[in-house]
Nucleic acid binder design. Sequence first.
RNA 1: GGCCUCGUAGUUCAAUGGAUAGAACGGAAGUUUCCUAAACUUUAAAUACAGGUUCGAUUCCUGUCGAGGCUACCA
Length: 598
Amino acid sequence: MNPELFLQEKIAQALNELFGLETSAGQISLQKTRAEFKGEFTLVTFPYIKVSKKSPEQTGEAIGTWLKSRTIETKEFNVVKGFLNISLNENSWLAFFSSLIKNNNYGFKTTGPDSKSVMIEYPSPNTNKPLHLGHLRNIFLGASVSELLKANGYHVIHSCLYNDRGTNISKSMLAWQMFANGSTPEFTGQKPDHFVGDYYVKFSNAYKEEIEKLIAEGLSKEDAEKHSELSKKVNEMTVAWEKGDSEIRSLWKKMNDWVYTGFNETYELLGIQPEKFYYESDVYDLGKETVQEGLEKGIFFQKEDGSIWIDLTAEGLDQKVVLRSNGTSVYITQDIATANEKERDFPIDKSIYVVGNEQDYHFKVLFLILKKLGKSYADHLFHLSYGMVELPTGKMKSREGTVVDADDLAKEVIDRAEEVTRAQGRIDHLSESEKKELFRILGLGALKYFILKVDPKKKMVFNPEESVDLQGNTGPFIQYSHARIRSVILNSDKNDNELLNLPIPAIDSLQKEELELLRLQHAFPSIIAEACLTYSPALIANFVYELARNFNQFYHEHSVLKAESQEIRQFRLQLSLKTGYLIRDAMKLLGIAVPERM
RNA sequence: GGCCUCGUAGUUCAAUGGAUAGAACGGAAGUUUCCUAAACUUUAAAUACAGGUUCGAUUCCUGUCGAGGCUACCA
C-alpha cells in the first residue's frame, strides 16, 4: 500500500471517468496539505478546469465525491478554492506502515553486477598547504553525494587528483631550503601538512618583503615583481624539477610525503578514503599527444610563436591556449590527460568532478574540447559545481590570514561538543574511548550538517560561532532526537526485533502528530531519489530535520510508554523505532553518524 | 567592457508556477513531581525596485540598482 501512488491512480481514473481526460498516475501531482487545513494530500484543480468545464471549486468537489464514493480508503475531503484536500483512513495508513516497517532497506536501491559505475573526484587539493574550510564543503559534499549515488543503485569509485607540482609547490620547497635548517615535522612535532604550509607562508612573507624593498628603491610594482630574486629562484626550481634534478626531486618527494601523511590523518578524522589517486606529476606531460591529435584533426590551431589554441568563439566562449609556446602543458592540458586516464583505468558510466563554481568556465571549456576531440566519454562528464564559502567578515584570503584551517575547526567543534555533553551528565557509564568517539560524532555532526543543509549551488556564509551551536536546526538536534528515541525503546519491555515482527495493531484514530510522522516516512524514498538526481544533500538535511522536529512534537504531546491502551503503546513504539531508523539512514546519507545516547 | 551566478524577517537558511512565503538563531513571553528540556508552546519580524507572461509569480521573461565569480602562455 502506497498512499500517494494509490491516490494518483484513483485521481487519474476519476479524471478519465468524470471528464474524459486521458492521463496516467505519474502525471498527477500531489502536494502536502498545508497545516491549517485538514488532509494529508492536496490536488490543485486549476489545471483541470479546462477539461471539466467547471469552476475550480466544482472540479474539486466532483473529484472528491468520486474518490469518497468509489474508494473505501478515502476518509474525507474538503475543497478550498482550487485545492482539494484529501484524508485517507486509518487502515490505509496502518497498512502502509505495516509494509514499511518490515523493509529494512526502505528508500534505498541495492547495487548489483548490473549497477552503473560512477567516478567522483574530490577534494583534489594542492600539496603545498593544509586543507581549509573550502575543502571541507568540497569533502562533505563529495562524500554525501557518493552516499546518495550508492543509495540509488550506483557503484561509486572515489578518486582524488593531487596537484603536486609546479609553482606553488616550489615556493614551499624553496622556503624550506632557505629557512628550515633541515628541520622536519618529526622534530617540531607539528602535523606534517601544517609544517609544510608554514614554509609556504614563510615564502609569501619573504616575497612580500622583497617586493616592498624593491618598491622602496624606486621600482614600480610591476618591475619589482619582474626583478624579484625569489620569484626567479622559484622558476628555476620548477625547471630543475622538470629536468629531474635529483636533489630537488628528493626534497619534493619528502615534502609531498609529509603533506600526504597529514592529509590522510584529516581524511580519517572526516571519514573519507579515496580509492584511486591521480598525480599531476604523472599526467602533466601526457596531454601533449592529445593536443597533437587535435592539431592534426584541425580542431586546434597553432600560432606563429608555436603556442596551440582552440577557438571556441562560435560557442560563445573565447580562444583558449592548450599548449604553451615553449611546448609545456597548461592546466587544461593536464585535465584532458587525466580524463583519458580515468576512462582507461575504469569502466565508468559517469564521471563527476566536485569543484567550486569559480571553475565553471574552465570545465565548460574542458568538456567542450573533449567533445570536439570526439571522445566517446565526453557526454558523461559532469562538473558538480558548488558555491564558495565566505566568512561573516567576507571572503577567505590566505594572504590576509583569514583562512579557517580544517583541522583547527574540527578540533574546535569536537571540543565544544565535549564541553556540552559532559555538562549534561548522561554519559557517565561510557568508557573514555566511547566518550571520545561520541564527542567526535557530535562535533563533526554539527559541522557537516551546518555545511550540508545549504543548497550546494549557492554560496554560503560560514559563521564559526553558529557552526558550534547544538540547538535548533543543527546536527546535534537531530542526533539528540535519535538518542531520545533509542532511550524510549530501551525503557520499554521490547527490543528492536520484537517490535519489528509484531503485527501493527488496529488503531481507531490516529493523532495528527502520528499521521504527520507517517506522511514524512512515506515521502522518504522520493526525497532520496530527488536528492540524488539534483546532487543536493540539502534536501536530505531539510527532510531529516523535519522528521526529527515532528518526532519531538509527537513526543511532547503524547506519551509512548504510558499510552492510553496497550495497542496504542505498541504502535507508538513501532512508529518511534522506525522514525529512529529513518533518522539514522538519512543522516548516513549526509555522512553523519547518530549515537544511541548523548 | 564581455560572460556567468545571486539579491527572501535583524542574521543564517527553506519554499516541482499554487492557498495566509516556512524554519533556526537573536528579541519578547511561557512549559519540567511526566519516556533524555541539546526539547516543546506562544509572539513580533521578510520576497531589492519597475514592468511583462499567467486563473495564479519568491519561482519564468525584460530593464534598473546592488553583491560575487570568471574573463592569464596561473592552478
